[in-house]
Each structure stands twice: as structure tokens, then as C-alpha cells.
Design a protein around this nucleic acid. Structure first.
Lengths: 210, 210, 210, 210
DNA sequence: GATGAATGAGGGTTCATTCAT
DNA sequence: GATGAATGAACCCTCATTCAT
């Protein structure tokens, strides 16, 4: 029996993970309901414990899964094969687009940080996933320096946090910001304007002073 | 009688609000416990409903209170009396320091956005608090333009979101970022480095191209 | 100061009693809220306890008040001055009309009986109110017997319970009965039909067999 | 394992329903305590929500159950097979006896009407249960008419309400009535007298005028 | 691998009542 | 006579988790 509700362990596991990701994204770790996850996954609640041990175990699995997803998409950018400025622009655009299309990733991160990163602290996988990103970005920066395009001594971690932060704050806090500034930050034109603004900020931040 | 348990309504209300702010910041809206708030406030649980109506009402009150606090501190910077570049630097430093010293404000905002801003949407006070900020920043920008220091056409809202976002993402996600990048982002030297980095980014973003 | 909110003790007491009667009628004893009573009476909650001692004391006062009201209205029928059949018809119509116009009286009685009559058991007033009714009805019956109109040996208490019961069950259970029988028992025509039906039943019950 | 605490869902459900019926009857809907129901049913409080969704859901289930019970017992009278006068007498006696032996049914109805029939309004089952009763009683009446025993044009619904009302008011209000009339209406002789009285009233109400 | 039934602790909220003024 | 502030017990309901099959 290999239909959608039957005995295909890997699919059951995946359906639970997907349902959990959505639930955690929508309601946070504390607000997520194990019952809803099971129902939406079309699985028995017991299965959730069978595969993931606990609600926290499930949360960690969802978080790891989402980290793996963004890093994997990032690798496909092949920044190493691009000219420094082009590589930078591409990463900036990708990061913005990714947050825009995957708001659940931001919510997951917010939840994890609300809980002082106690899940991610127990995960070796997550740590290992990120050194390639730093290394790649570091090499892009060095190539740019050598070519006389970028200023010297820029820390790739600081740079990445800026690239991400420029989009993250805007998108993660879109409800409060739209409210306090009295404009719809999610309107297509507003999004396009932000995307351009971010590119300007990051490029200017790196440009070698004249 | 004006001691801690006695009949001083204003103090009782304030103690509840303070306790609530801390609890919401630490555990989020969903994870916050009404019992703990009451206990920490040295008040009866019933009083919480007497003054704020509901847990949500209390959350909104805390949020409004924190918004009022940062905006009030901001006004004391008296940016209007400073030279454009100096005003900008001062706001950048203030914003970073404020987030650093008041992490509860970031957590409150994260919670509110997790709930799609449904509390703030019902608050007139919050909306009214923010137009002065935009106007002040707008005037600083215009002064800088006229003096030939800043590039033209920068949107004060976009700029403010950048100023805030550069610090917010770093500090709000300090647990996950420290973990994935393998360094303690809260170490004094790391904090100082970030503060300098942000100032560089923002100033460069505004500087008129040569 | 003798305005509506001021220091006119008797009026304050009466306003509380009226508000309580309505509240008890609408929600029952258990469902009634002391807060709502005070609010609707425009009085401070403390006053309610000042005048009536407790929620139960207030309930008893409301019950006594309503008993006094119906008995007083009954006395104004002056059944003693009417011919036996006319007197009977008049009481039957009055009783139906009274229940129809004062549904709160039925609800109060239901509540009191749900609580096994524990309030009324402590009230001397209520007992004393009712012997005149039985005596009056007894005298009407005896006059009718002597005139050869009514059958002999009818117990005035049994008769009164029938007169009341015929209307009470219909009106007190109007929601469930309308539902299960699929007709609106409160429509004007339905009410008129029931009134006629009751008169028929009671008159026939008393008529001396041919 | 089929003992009292074990896994026999149907029995668990039934125990909860029985305990609930008693609790609702004794204290009304508002006064009933979910905790007491669970304890008396020997079940976990959570089970109550597992099976019935809410306190209101449980109340409706109890109400439907009691309606089903009386209607089922009524059907066993097989009124259709009896002579008209005999059928009538049997229904009258049955109805009185049923209310006498099942006071919880009256209390449930009182509660439901206090709440304006909002539970029964959502129940299809209850409506469907009652057309047979009306039809059966209607056929008895028509047979009596044709045999020249009953007066013409009597509405079976009006008649049923009279049959029930004569007993209901007496029994449902037994505490207040005993008190105000100064006699114990529940004494065996009083009950027997009422039973006879009701039979007289109903039979006379139907008897064709000479 | 999978299920429905069961659990106990604790969630936010509301209650009638009383205190200090 | 009248008030707003305060109380603690208990309300209905929901939680993540585990049992027996």
C-alpha cells in the first residue's frame, strides 16, 4: 500500500515535517498545536512522536530543514563563477527574494531566538552548513579587493548580516511597520523600491572610497 | 496607605504593566503566563483584568508603552539642532544602543508581527507616535541634500528601516547567528565592531557619489 | 440631592431590586451576575450587599416582590363580587395574561424550584400571601356548588394548579415546544387559541356532569 | 480490558452522558460543574470534550437522550391498539408517572428554555422525534370523534400540552407550591389525588357536550 | 507502522464578596 | 450612603504526551 495515507514511512515523515513547518511558522513554537500538525499531515498524532520524539524535536527538524533549503538554494547561485560586483548583487537579490517568498523561515528563526537558540545549540548539522557560505562570501570579497573594487578588511559575516538584515527587518516586521508608517509595505511598488534600496545600500557600503 | 500591596491604583497598574512587559518579552505573547505576571507584579490575578481587560489588552498596553518609550528617548536626541552628518550618526548610534539595552522591545515586536499586527491595528496612539520621527528624519535628510552632503531622493522611511534593520537582525537573532557563524556575537568587541560597521554602512549609503 | 443617582435610599433600593429581577429572570439564579445588576441599577456593587446582604438575599427579595405583585393584581379582580362562572373565567384569563406579560415570574419560580425552594422556605411573608387566594377561590367554588353549577368536592388548590399549569407549561417551555412541534407558539393567533383552549378545559373540568 | 476505567469507548461515553444528565438536572446548565460530571463518570475531564466537544454539546446530548427516552417509552404504550378513551387515559397516566419518576427531564427542559432553546434549535434529531407523537395522538382523537365520544376539532398539540402541563407545573414547582399552599405536595396521598384530578380534567375536557 | 482513547497539569478568565476610604 | 480597588477560589477548556491494542 503506497497511497497517500498508507505505509510509506518516508512520505509520512515528510508530510509531518511540512505540516509542522507551516504550523510553527504561522503560530510560533509556543502557539503551534501538535493536534493541528497531525491533522494537517493526515497522520496519527502518535506518529509524530514516533518520528521526531517530541514537539521540540519536530521544531528542530523543521528548522534544520529550512536552513538546509536556503543554503542549498544559495549554492546554486554559483557565486564563485561570477565577477565580484555581479556576485554581490546576485546574493543581495537572492536573499531578499528568498525572505519574501519564504516568510516561514523568518518566523522560525524568530521563534528559535525567542527560546535563546536552545534547539539549534544541540544541532551539529546546522553549524556545518554555514561555513561554506562564509567561505564563499569571503572569497568574493577578496577577489573584489584585489581588483580594486571593494574596500579592504570587510568581514564577510558582518556583510552577510547586513545583506540579510536589510530585508529581514522590513519583511519580518511588515505588519507593525506598515501600521506605524501608514503605508502598505507589501504593495508591489513598495517591495520593488525596497529591493532597489537594499542593493544601493550594500553596494555603496562596499565600494572603495574615491 | 501607599505601600506595595495597598491602594495606589496607579502604582498597581504600573507594576502589572512592567511585569507583563518582561514576561511577554521573555516568552512571547503565547508563551507568557498570566499567573506569572500577577505574581511578579505582587498583584492579584484579577487585577490584571480589572485594569487591562484581557491578556491581549495587556499586551497592547505593553507594546504602546515601549513604543512611547523609544520615541520619547529619540526626541531627546534633538536631531534638529545638529549638523546633518552628526544628526545621522547620532540616530544610528542611539538606535543600536537602544536595541542592545532593550532587547524586550524587539521581542515584543516579533510577537506582534507573528500575530499579524492585530493589536497595533486597533491602536490609534501608536500610529500618531510615529509621524514626528519620519518628519524629523526627513528634515535632516533635506538639510544634508541642500548642503551637498547627501545624495538626493532618499526616502526617510527606507532609511530608518535600514538603520534599525542593521542592528535588529544582528541582535534579535543573536542566538542563531552566534551558533551558525561559530562566534559569540554578544562579546564586547563583537558589539563594538558591529556598531562601527553599521555606522559605516549607513553613512556610505547616504554619501553623495563623487 | 434627590436625582436619579443621588442619595435617595428607597429609590436606590428599588432600582437594585428591579435590575435584579430582570437579571434573575433572564439568566436564572446561577447565571445572574452581581456586576450586571449593579451596573444596570446604576449603583455601586457594595450597595447591593448593604441593602440585601447577599446574592441569595437579593433573589429572595425579588421573588417575594413578584409574588406580592401577582397576588395584589389578583385581589383587584374582586372575584367575590362576581357570579361563580364569571369569577372563574376571569381568574383563568387573568392568570394566562399575567404569565404572558410577566415571563420573568415563571423564570424566577423555575430557579427557585431548581434550588429546592430554599429561599422561599425561609420567608414567612410568602406563606401569608397565599391563604387569601385559596380562601377566595374556595368560596367561589362553594358558591358554584350551591348554585348547582359546579361539581362537588373540587379542591381549590388542585384547581388553581390546573389553571396556572395550563398556561405555565405552554409559556415557560415556549422555546422547546415551538421547536419540537414545529410551530411558533408565540404567534398572536397561537396565543389566542391557547387562551380559548384553557378556558374550555377549566370550565369543562368544573361543570357538573349532566 | 472492559472494566470501569478501561478502553470501552461506548461505555465511557455513556457514563459521561449519565453523569451529565444528573448534574444538569440537579444544578441547571449554568450551575452544572464539568469537574463533577467527570468525577462522577469516573472519567478524565478531557474525555468529556473528546466525546462531546463542549459543555453545551454535552447538554444537548443529554437533552436529546432524554427526549428519545420519553418518546420511546411512549411508543411502547401502543395507543393505536387501544380504544380511544382507554388510550387517552393511558397517555395521561403515563405522562404523569414519567414526570414523577424522571424529574431530571423537567429540569433539563427548564434549563433549555431559560437559554431560549438555543441547543435544541441546532438539533435535527429532536424535531424528527416528535411528529410521530402528534400523529398518533391525532389518530386517537379522530377515532374518538368518529365514535361520538370526543368533541370535534381538538388540536392534538393543544391537548398534549394540557396533559403534560397539568403534571409538569405541579411537579416542577413542587417546592414553591408546597410552601405557599402549606401542604406537602409530594406526600403519597397528594400525588394520588393529583393523578386522579388530572385524569378528570383531561377526560372532561374532551367529552362531547351532552 | 499505525491507531483511538486516555491523562493530569495548567491555560486564561470570571465569580461573589470585602476592604479602606 | 456610597465608592473604586482588591481578593482567592473556581470556572470551562486545552495542552503535550502516553497507553493499550
Amino acid at each position: 500500500m503506497v497511497n497517500s495515507r498508507g505505509r510509506d514511512p518516508e512520505r509520512t515523515r515528510q508530510r509531518i515535517l511540512d505540516a509542522a513547518t507551516e504550523e510553527f511558522a504561522r503560530h510560533g513554537l509556543g502557539g503551534a498545536r501538535v493536534d493541528r500538525i497531525a491533522t494537517r499531515a493526515g497522520a496519527n498524532k502518535r506518529m509524530l512522536y514516533y518520528y521526531f520524539g517530541s514537539k521540540d524535536g519536530l521544531f528542530l527538524a523543521a528548522l534544520e530543514d529550512r536552513y538546509a533549503h536556503i543554503r542549498s538554494a544559495e549554492r546554486e547561485l554559483e557565486l564563485e563563477h561570477l565577477a565580484p560586483v555581479r556576485a554581490l548583487e546576485r546574493l543581495v537579490k537572492f536573499t531578499w527574494d528568498y525572505f519574501l517568498e519564504h516568510p516561514e523561515f523568518m518566523t522560525l528563526l524568530n521563534s528559535e531566538n525567542l527560546h535563546k537558540g536552545r534547539h539549534v545549540a544541540r544541532s551539529r548539522r546546522v553549524r556545518e552548513m554555514h561555513s561554506p557560505l562564509v567561505e564563499t562570501l569571503g572569497r568574493v570579497l577578496r577577489r573584489g579587493e584585489r581588483a580594486g573594487l571593494f574596500r579592504k578588511g570587510v568581514d564577510p559575516v558582518q556583510l552577510y548580516i547586513s545583506i540579510a538584515g536589510e530585508g529581514y527587518f522590513y519583511l519580518s516586521n511588515r505588519y507593525t511597520l506598515s501600521q506605524i508608517f501608514g503605508r502598505d509595505l507589501m504593495a508591489p511598488r513598495a517591495l520593488a523600491a525596497r529591493s532597489r534600496h537594499i542593493a544601493d545600500v550594500i553596494v555603496n557600503a562596499l565600494r572603495r572610497p574615491a
